[in-house]
Amino acid sequence: MSGVDKWFGELHVLQDIDLSIDRGEVVVVIGPSGSGKSTLCRTINRLESIENGEITIDGQKLPAEGKELAKLRADVGMVFQSFNLFAHKSVLENVTMGPIKVRKQSKADAEKRARELLDRVGVGAQADKVPAQLSGGQQQRVAIARALAMDPKVMLFDEPTSALDPEMINEVLEVMVGLARDGMTMVVVTHEMGFARKAANRVVFMDGGRIVESATPEEFFTNPSSDRAKDFLSKILNH
């Protein structure tokens, strides 16, 4: 993405953002609340539109609303803070909906693959329940399986563990670390510094709608170059 600007009314939430992410790279976006990191994540599959600048994925410019955009979104997996599993569908149906409706796979193929994915994220036994019967951590892992079922080129994680009880955070992070090891391209907005250290290739620090710093995790956590990042880290790492 280059020269991206976005306003919410008067508020300039993204200011001249330039960011490029290589295939297989895991980029963790951190920063204080209201710094624009979630918005940045959501612009990548155009859940938020932008006013200026350009976003390209795999050489293709992000299309405007319509069939083309739907096609592109199919290649970009997204995991939300509040899971957003389809409440009226079973866990299995949540995972097969995309492959059946968008990829036009047969029900049998989609279900076979969905069960594999649910096993992979450790919730295979819950396939026939509805989302509300699952714990938060299980729901989020289903959401990851749902995104993976589309064989995405890149996965976006918008604060995937922020709505979880502390003891459930790890089960979700472990799945994410596994994905990163397997070479998935990932953009992760999070407050989990442990995950950033462990799995990120690069840490992007945002504040006030700008990218303040972009560095490897070692560099960022041991020797941040900007005062704003130093200040932020000193506040969160003291506890």
Partner: peptide, 15 residues
């Protein structure tokens, strides 16, 4: 909740 429609669109479903 708007998140339901967002999740659907993020999967690549049309409006």
């Amino acid at each position: 909740s708007p998140g339901q429609a967002e999740a659907a669109r993020a999967l690549g479903l049309t409006f």
